[in-house]
Design a protein around this nucleic acid. Structure first.
Length: 375
DNA sequence: TAGGCCATCTGGTCCT
DNA sequence: AGGACCAGATGGCCTA
Protein backbone atom coordinates (compact mmCIF):
# COMPACT_ATOMS: atom_id res chain seq x y z
CA UNK A 1 0.00 0.00 0.00
CA UNK A 2 2.73 2.35 0.82
CA UNK A 3 4.00 1.97 -2.63
CA UNK A 4 1.07 3.64 -4.06
CA UNK A 5 2.75 6.54 -2.42
CA UNK A 6 6.03 5.72 -3.89
CA UNK A 7 4.30 5.74 -7.20
CA UNK A 8 2.69 8.95 -6.13
CA UNK A 9 6.05 10.43 -5.61
CA UNK A 10 7.03 9.43 -9.05
CA UNK A 11 3.85 10.67 -10.54
CA UNK A 12 3.90 14.00 -8.88
CA UNK A 13 7.24 14.94 -10.14
CA UNK A 14 10.00 13.82 -12.29
CA UNK A 15 12.35 13.64 -9.43
CA UNK A 16 16.02 13.58 -9.69
CA UNK A 17 17.64 10.57 -11.12
CA UNK A 18 20.86 10.54 -9.35
CA UNK A 19 23.90 9.40 -11.15
CA UNK A 20 22.21 9.80 -14.44
CA UNK A 21 22.52 6.20 -15.30
CA UNK A 22 19.47 4.96 -13.62
CA UNK A 23 16.92 3.62 -15.92
CA UNK A 24 13.86 4.81 -14.20
CA UNK A 25 10.57 4.02 -15.75
CA UNK A 26 10.63 6.18 -18.73
CA UNK A 27 7.91 8.68 -19.18
CA UNK A 28 5.63 8.81 -16.27
CA UNK A 29 2.22 10.16 -16.10
CA UNK A 30 1.76 13.16 -13.98
CA UNK A 31 -1.09 14.67 -12.14
CA UNK A 32 -1.94 17.99 -13.60
CA UNK A 33 -0.92 20.45 -11.03
CA UNK A 34 -0.63 24.12 -10.93
CA UNK A 35 0.98 24.94 -14.17
CA UNK A 36 0.67 28.58 -13.67
CA UNK A 37 4.21 29.38 -14.49
CA UNK A 38 5.16 31.64 -17.23
CA UNK A 39 4.42 35.22 -17.68
CA UNK A 40 1.28 34.86 -19.63
CA UNK A 41 0.16 31.40 -19.01
CA UNK A 42 -3.37 30.70 -18.17
CA UNK A 43 -3.92 28.94 -14.95
CA UNK A 44 -4.63 25.31 -14.71
CA UNK A 45 -6.07 23.17 -12.02
CA UNK A 46 -5.58 24.30 -8.47
CA UNK A 47 -2.46 23.04 -6.92
CA UNK A 48 -3.95 21.58 -3.82
CA UNK A 49 -5.99 19.01 -5.51
CA UNK A 50 -7.95 16.71 -3.34
CA UNK A 51 -6.09 13.86 -4.88
CA UNK A 52 -2.82 15.24 -3.75
CA UNK A 53 -4.07 15.88 -0.27
CA UNK A 54 -5.40 12.38 -0.12
CA UNK A 55 -2.12 11.00 -1.21
CA UNK A 56 -0.25 13.06 1.29
CA UNK A 57 -2.52 11.93 4.07
CA UNK A 58 -2.18 8.42 2.89
CA UNK A 59 1.54 8.84 2.95
CA UNK A 60 1.48 9.86 6.55
CA UNK A 61 -0.66 6.92 7.44
CA UNK A 62 1.51 4.52 5.64
CA UNK A 63 4.56 5.86 7.26
CA UNK A 64 3.06 5.07 10.61
CA UNK A 65 2.00 1.56 9.83
CA UNK A 66 4.49 0.44 7.37
CA UNK A 67 3.94 -3.03 6.00
CA UNK A 68 4.91 -4.26 2.67
CA UNK A 69 5.16 -7.46 0.86
CA UNK A 70 8.33 -8.41 -0.90
CA UNK A 71 6.76 -8.48 -4.30
CA UNK A 72 5.55 -4.96 -3.87
CA UNK A 73 8.98 -3.96 -2.99
CA UNK A 74 10.26 -5.51 -6.12
CA UNK A 75 7.62 -4.13 -8.32
CA UNK A 76 7.33 -0.56 -7.24
CA UNK A 77 10.76 0.44 -6.22
CA UNK A 78 12.79 -0.04 -9.24
CA UNK A 79 14.32 3.35 -8.72
CA UNK A 80 15.44 2.47 -5.29
CA UNK A 81 17.01 -0.73 -6.37
CA UNK A 82 19.82 1.31 -7.72
CA UNK A 83 19.87 3.81 -4.99
CA UNK A 84 23.10 4.34 -3.19
CA UNK A 85 23.23 2.72 0.11
CA UNK A 86 22.16 5.01 2.87
CA UNK A 87 24.87 6.48 4.94
CA UNK A 88 26.29 4.22 7.56
CA UNK A 89 25.61 6.46 10.45
CA UNK A 90 22.00 6.59 9.49
CA UNK A 91 21.67 2.89 9.69
CA UNK A 92 23.73 2.40 12.74
CA UNK A 93 21.25 3.83 15.11
CA UNK A 94 18.29 2.04 13.79
CA UNK A 95 19.25 -1.50 14.29
CA UNK A 96 18.90 -1.28 17.97
CA UNK A 97 15.44 0.12 17.82
CA UNK A 98 13.73 -2.20 15.54
CA UNK A 99 16.04 -5.06 15.29
CA UNK A 100 13.28 -7.32 16.39
CA UNK A 101 11.08 -6.16 13.64
CA UNK A 102 13.38 -7.20 10.91
CA UNK A 103 15.37 -9.74 12.72
CA UNK A 104 14.79 -12.27 10.06
CA UNK A 105 16.32 -9.95 7.55
CA UNK A 106 19.48 -9.22 9.43
CA UNK A 107 22.56 -10.92 8.28
CA UNK A 108 25.82 -11.39 10.06
CA UNK A 109 28.25 -8.61 9.49
CA UNK A 110 31.18 -10.56 8.26
CA UNK A 111 33.95 -8.81 6.55
CA UNK A 112 33.54 -10.74 3.43
CA UNK A 113 29.87 -10.28 3.37
CA UNK A 114 30.04 -6.65 2.83
CA UNK A 115 30.30 -5.74 -0.75
CA UNK A 116 30.79 -8.65 -2.90
CA UNK A 117 29.34 -12.00 -3.29
CA UNK A 118 31.91 -12.83 -5.88
CA UNK A 119 34.49 -13.59 -3.25
CA UNK A 120 37.05 -11.38 -4.88
CA UNK A 121 39.92 -10.35 -2.74
CA UNK A 122 39.70 -6.76 -1.73
CA UNK A 123 41.62 -4.55 0.61
CA UNK A 124 40.03 -4.27 3.98
CA UNK A 125 37.96 -1.21 4.39
CA UNK A 126 38.59 1.16 7.14
CA UNK A 127 36.07 2.93 9.18
CA UNK A 128 32.76 1.71 10.40
CA UNK A 129 31.54 -1.45 8.90
CA UNK A 130 29.00 -1.00 6.27
CA UNK A 131 25.92 -2.88 7.02
CA UNK A 132 24.22 -4.75 4.34
CA UNK A 133 21.22 -3.07 2.98
CA UNK A 134 18.56 -5.45 3.96
CA UNK A 135 15.05 -5.13 2.77
CA UNK A 136 13.94 -3.92 6.12
CA UNK A 137 16.60 -1.27 6.13
CA UNK A 138 15.80 -0.26 2.66
CA UNK A 139 12.22 -0.07 3.68
CA UNK A 140 12.98 2.21 6.58
CA UNK A 141 15.07 4.31 4.35
CA UNK A 142 12.25 4.66 1.93
CA UNK A 143 9.87 5.58 4.67
CA UNK A 144 12.22 8.25 5.89
CA UNK A 145 12.67 9.50 2.40
CA UNK A 146 8.97 9.62 1.76
CA UNK A 147 8.37 11.48 4.95
CA UNK A 148 11.04 13.95 4.03
CA UNK A 149 9.59 14.32 0.58
CA UNK A 150 6.17 14.99 2.00
CA UNK A 151 7.56 17.57 4.35
CA UNK A 152 9.44 19.21 1.56
CA UNK A 153 6.33 19.30 -0.57
CA UNK A 154 4.38 20.89 2.21
CA UNK A 155 7.12 23.33 2.82
CA UNK A 156 7.18 24.36 -0.79
CA UNK A 157 3.42 24.59 -0.82
CA UNK A 158 3.61 26.92 2.12
CA UNK A 159 6.16 28.95 0.30
CA UNK A 160 3.96 29.09 -2.75
CA UNK A 161 0.97 30.06 -0.66
CA UNK A 162 2.94 32.92 0.76
CA UNK A 163 3.94 33.90 -2.72
CA UNK A 164 0.33 33.78 -3.78
CA UNK A 165 -0.55 36.08 -0.91
CA UNK A 166 2.13 38.39 -2.11
CA UNK A 167 0.71 38.30 -5.61
CA UNK A 168 -2.56 39.51 -4.24
CA UNK A 169 -1.15 42.57 -2.60
CA UNK A 170 1.16 43.76 -5.29
CA UNK A 171 -0.32 45.65 -8.19
CA UNK A 172 -1.82 43.71 -11.02
CA UNK A 173 -3.17 40.71 -9.34
CA UNK A 174 -4.82 38.52 -11.87
CA UNK A 175 -6.56 35.28 -11.21
CA UNK A 176 -6.09 34.13 -14.74
CA UNK A 177 -2.64 35.36 -15.49
CA UNK A 178 -0.30 34.83 -12.66
CA UNK A 179 2.96 36.60 -12.36
CA UNK A 180 5.82 34.24 -12.17
CA UNK A 181 7.55 33.82 -8.86
CA UNK A 182 10.51 35.90 -9.78
CA UNK A 183 8.38 38.63 -11.30
CA UNK A 184 6.19 38.70 -8.23
CA UNK A 185 9.20 39.20 -6.03
CA UNK A 186 10.61 41.88 -8.25
CA UNK A 187 7.35 43.72 -8.51
CA UNK A 188 6.88 43.51 -4.75
CA UNK A 189 10.31 44.88 -4.18
CA UNK A 190 9.70 47.76 -6.53
CA UNK A 191 6.34 48.40 -5.01
CA UNK A 192 7.75 48.55 -1.53
CA UNK A 193 10.41 50.89 -2.66
CA UNK A 194 7.95 53.11 -4.48
CA UNK A 195 5.67 53.35 -1.51
CA UNK A 196 8.47 54.07 0.87
CA UNK A 197 9.72 56.69 -1.50
CA UNK A 198 6.32 58.32 -1.36
CA UNK A 199 6.51 58.26 2.37
CA UNK A 200 9.98 59.65 2.38
CA UNK A 201 9.31 62.49 0.03
CA UNK A 202 5.79 63.15 1.14
CA UNK A 203 4.86 63.82 -2.43
CA UNK A 204 2.65 61.85 -4.69
CA UNK A 205 4.41 60.88 -7.86
CA UNK A 206 2.70 61.12 -11.15
CA UNK A 207 1.38 57.97 -12.59
CA UNK A 208 4.11 57.50 -15.09
CA UNK A 209 6.78 57.87 -12.50
CA UNK A 210 5.05 55.40 -10.36
CA UNK A 211 4.63 52.80 -13.02
CA UNK A 212 8.15 53.47 -14.08
CA UNK A 213 9.37 52.63 -10.64
CA UNK A 214 7.14 49.62 -10.38
CA UNK A 215 8.35 48.16 -13.60
CA UNK A 216 12.02 48.36 -12.95
CA UNK A 217 13.60 45.09 -13.81
CA UNK A 218 10.39 43.44 -14.81
CA UNK A 219 10.04 41.51 -17.98
CA UNK A 220 8.24 42.96 -20.90
CA UNK A 221 5.00 41.04 -20.39
CA UNK A 222 4.88 41.97 -16.76
CA UNK A 223 5.61 45.54 -17.60
CA UNK A 224 2.73 45.50 -19.99
CA UNK A 225 0.57 43.92 -17.37
CA UNK A 226 1.35 46.65 -14.91
CA UNK A 227 0.70 49.26 -17.51
CA UNK A 228 -2.57 47.59 -18.33
CA UNK A 229 -3.58 47.59 -14.71
CA UNK A 230 -2.72 51.21 -14.41
CA UNK A 231 -4.74 52.05 -17.39
CA UNK A 232 -7.71 50.24 -16.00
CA UNK A 233 -7.49 51.57 -12.54
CA UNK A 234 -4.88 54.19 -11.94
CA UNK A 235 -6.40 55.31 -8.72
CA UNK A 236 -5.55 52.05 -7.18
CA UNK A 237 -1.93 52.89 -7.42
CA UNK A 238 -1.84 56.48 -6.51
CA UNK A 239 -3.38 58.46 -3.74
CA UNK A 240 -6.11 60.82 -4.55
CA UNK A 241 -5.22 64.42 -4.18
CA UNK A 242 -7.98 66.94 -4.37
CA UNK A 243 -9.97 64.39 -6.22
CA UNK A 244 -7.59 64.23 -9.07
CA UNK A 245 -4.34 62.78 -10.00
CA UNK A 246 -2.34 65.77 -11.00
CA UNK A 247 -0.06 64.17 -13.49
CA UNK A 248 -2.18 61.39 -14.66
CA UNK A 249 -2.22 61.16 -18.34
CA UNK A 250 -5.67 60.83 -19.80
CA UNK A 251 -6.73 57.49 -21.03
CA UNK A 252 -6.11 57.96 -24.73
CA UNK A 253 -2.49 58.68 -24.07
CA UNK A 254 -2.07 55.14 -22.99
CA UNK A 255 -3.68 53.63 -25.98
CA UNK A 256 -1.36 55.20 -28.40
CA UNK A 257 0.68 52.10 -28.55
CA UNK A 258 3.86 53.42 -27.12
CA UNK A 259 6.13 50.61 -26.31
CA UNK A 260 8.39 49.65 -23.53
CA UNK A 261 10.40 47.52 -25.80
CA UNK A 262 14.06 47.64 -25.46
CA UNK A 263 15.93 49.92 -27.77
CA UNK A 264 18.95 47.78 -27.65
CA UNK A 265 21.78 46.57 -25.58
CA UNK A 266 24.31 48.54 -23.77
CA UNK A 267 27.72 46.99 -23.37
CA UNK A 268 28.07 45.35 -20.06
CA UNK A 269 24.42 45.44 -19.24
CA UNK A 270 22.39 42.38 -19.97
CA UNK A 271 19.23 44.28 -20.20
CA UNK A 272 17.01 43.47 -23.12
CA UNK A 273 14.26 41.38 -21.73
CA UNK A 274 13.40 43.80 -19.05
CA UNK A 275 11.17 46.57 -20.02
CA UNK A 276 13.08 49.61 -20.86
CA UNK A 277 10.71 52.33 -19.99
CA UNK A 278 12.96 55.14 -20.77
CA UNK A 279 11.31 58.47 -20.52
CA UNK A 280 11.78 59.36 -24.16
CA UNK A 281 9.98 56.22 -25.16
CA UNK A 282 7.23 56.77 -22.75
CA UNK A 283 6.64 60.41 -23.05
CA UNK A 284 6.90 60.94 -26.70
CA UNK A 285 3.29 59.90 -26.76
CA UNK A 286 2.24 62.10 -23.93
CA UNK A 287 4.29 65.15 -24.43
CA UNK A 288 1.58 67.34 -23.16
CA UNK A 289 1.73 65.73 -19.80
CA UNK A 290 3.86 67.12 -17.07
CA UNK A 291 7.13 65.36 -16.79
CA UNK A 292 7.34 64.72 -13.12
CA UNK A 293 9.49 61.68 -13.26
CA UNK A 294 12.68 63.04 -11.91
CA UNK A 295 11.61 64.11 -8.45
CA UNK A 296 10.29 60.68 -7.83
CA UNK A 297 13.18 58.81 -9.21
CA UNK A 298 16.02 60.92 -8.10
CA UNK A 299 15.96 59.54 -4.65
CA UNK A 300 17.07 56.27 -6.03
CA UNK A 301 17.16 52.90 -4.48
CA UNK A 302 19.60 52.46 -1.72
CA UNK A 303 19.66 48.77 -1.58
CA UNK A 304 20.21 46.19 -4.21
CA UNK A 305 17.41 46.40 -6.63
CA UNK A 306 16.10 45.11 -9.81
CA UNK A 307 18.32 45.43 -12.77
CA UNK A 308 18.30 48.81 -14.38
CA UNK A 309 15.74 49.25 -17.02
CA UNK A 310 17.27 52.16 -18.59
CA UNK A 311 20.72 52.42 -19.90
CA UNK A 312 20.56 56.00 -20.93
CA UNK A 313 21.40 57.51 -17.63
CA UNK A 314 17.92 58.28 -16.56
CA UNK A 315 18.31 56.29 -13.43
CA UNK A 316 20.46 57.19 -10.54
CA UNK A 317 23.78 55.47 -10.24
CA UNK A 318 22.62 53.66 -7.19
CA UNK A 319 20.73 51.35 -9.46
CA UNK A 320 22.95 48.40 -9.54
CA UNK A 321 22.15 45.16 -11.11
CA UNK A 322 22.94 42.01 -9.31
CA UNK A 323 24.99 39.40 -11.03
CA UNK A 324 22.86 36.68 -12.34
CA UNK A 325 19.77 38.73 -12.06
CA UNK A 326 19.00 38.53 -15.71
CA UNK A 327 17.54 35.19 -16.42
CA UNK A 328 15.86 36.23 -19.61
CA UNK A 329 18.08 35.92 -22.59
CA UNK A 330 16.26 38.33 -24.76
CA UNK A 331 13.21 36.24 -25.02
CA UNK A 332 10.70 39.00 -24.83
CA UNK A 333 11.85 42.29 -26.13
CA UNK A 334 10.82 42.76 -29.63
CA UNK A 335 8.60 39.77 -29.49
CA UNK A 336 5.88 42.09 -28.40
CA UNK A 337 6.05 43.73 -31.74
CA UNK A 338 6.07 47.13 -30.24
CA UNK A 339 2.54 46.91 -29.05
CA UNK A 340 2.18 47.70 -25.44
CA UNK A 341 -0.74 45.54 -24.61
CA UNK A 342 -0.24 42.76 -27.02
CA UNK A 343 0.18 42.03 -30.64
CA UNK A 344 -3.16 43.44 -31.56
CA UNK A 345 -2.52 46.64 -29.77
CA UNK A 346 -5.47 46.17 -27.51
CA UNK A 347 -5.08 45.99 -23.82
CA UNK A 348 -4.36 42.51 -22.77
CA UNK A 349 -5.92 42.89 -19.43
CA UNK A 350 -8.52 40.21 -19.31
CA UNK A 351 -9.18 39.22 -15.81
CA UNK A 352 -6.69 41.62 -14.44
CA UNK A 353 -7.44 43.34 -11.25
CA UNK A 354 -5.38 45.97 -9.73
CA UNK A 355 -5.01 44.27 -6.43
CA UNK A 356 -7.53 41.82 -5.29
CA UNK A 357 -10.70 43.58 -6.07
CA UNK A 358 -12.26 46.75 -4.94
CA UNK A 359 -11.99 46.06 -1.29
CA UNK A 360 -8.27 46.07 -1.46
CA UNK A 361 -8.40 49.13 -3.60
CA UNK A 362 -10.40 50.97 -1.02
CA UNK A 363 -8.05 49.92 1.69
CA UNK A 364 -5.10 51.06 -0.29
CA UNK A 365 -6.64 54.38 -1.05
CA UNK A 366 -7.45 54.90 2.58
CA UNK A 367 -3.94 54.04 3.53
CA UNK A 368 -2.41 56.20 0.91
CA UNK A 369 -4.60 59.12 1.74
CA UNK A 370 -3.77 58.69 5.38
CA UNK A 371 -0.13 58.85 4.47
CA UNK A 372 -0.55 62.14 2.74
CA UNK A 373 -2.72 63.62 5.36
CA UNK A 374 -0.09 62.86 7.90
CA UNK A 375 2.78 64.17 5.90
C1' DT B 1 12.02 22.99 -30.91
C1' DA B 2 14.15 25.93 -27.50
C1' DG B 3 13.52 28.31 -23.51
C1' DG B 4 10.95 29.60 -19.37
C1' DC B 5 8.67 28.11 -15.46
C1' DC B 6 7.30 24.88 -12.38
C1' DA B 7 6.83 20.79 -8.97
C1' DT B 8 9.13 17.30 -7.10
C1' DC B 9 12.86 14.37 -5.43
C1' DT B 10 17.13 14.11 -3.17
C1' DG B 11 21.19 14.55 -0.25
C1' DG B 12 23.67 17.70 2.56
C1' DT B 13 23.84 20.90 6.38
C1' DC B 14 22.25 23.23 10.30
C1' DC B 15 19.33 23.72 14.20
C1' DT B 16 16.41 22.30 18.09
C1' DA C 1 17.27 12.10 16.09
C1' DG C 2 14.32 14.49 13.48
C1' DG C 3 12.89 18.47 11.13
C1' DA C 4 13.79 22.72 8.45
C1' DC C 5 16.20 24.69 4.94
C1' DC C 6 18.78 24.71 0.80
C1' DA C 7 20.50 23.87 -3.78
C1' DG C 8 21.05 20.74 -7.61
C1' DA C 9 18.85 17.68 -10.76
C1' DT C 10 15.10 16.10 -13.48
C1' DG C 11 11.20 16.02 -16.30
C1' DG C 12 6.61 17.96 -17.64
C1' DC C 13 3.90 21.70 -19.54
C1' DC C 14 3.43 25.75 -22.20
C1' DT C 15 4.47 29.38 -25.49
C1' DA C 16 6.90 31.79 -29.10
Amino acid sequence: MAWALQAYGSVMGGGRRKGGGRGGRGQRGRVQMDRGGGHDRTLKAPRHSSQQEKMTRSLQDECDTEEQSPDQDQDQDQDLEHMDEPRDEEEEGEDGEDGGEDGEEEEPEDEGDEDGEEGEERPKRRGPKKKKLTKARMQRFKVRRMKANARERNRMHGLNDALESLRKVVPCYSKTQKLSKIETLRLAKNYIWALSEILRSGKAPDLMSFVHALCKGLSQPTTNLVAGCLQLNPRTFLPEQSGELPHLAPGPAYTGGYSYQSPGLTPGLPSPPYGTMEPPHIFHQIKSQPYALEPFLEAGFDGPLSPPLSVNGSFPPSFKHEPGDYPYPGHYGSAMGGALYGPGGGANVDGIMAFDGHQHERIMNVQMNAIFQDS
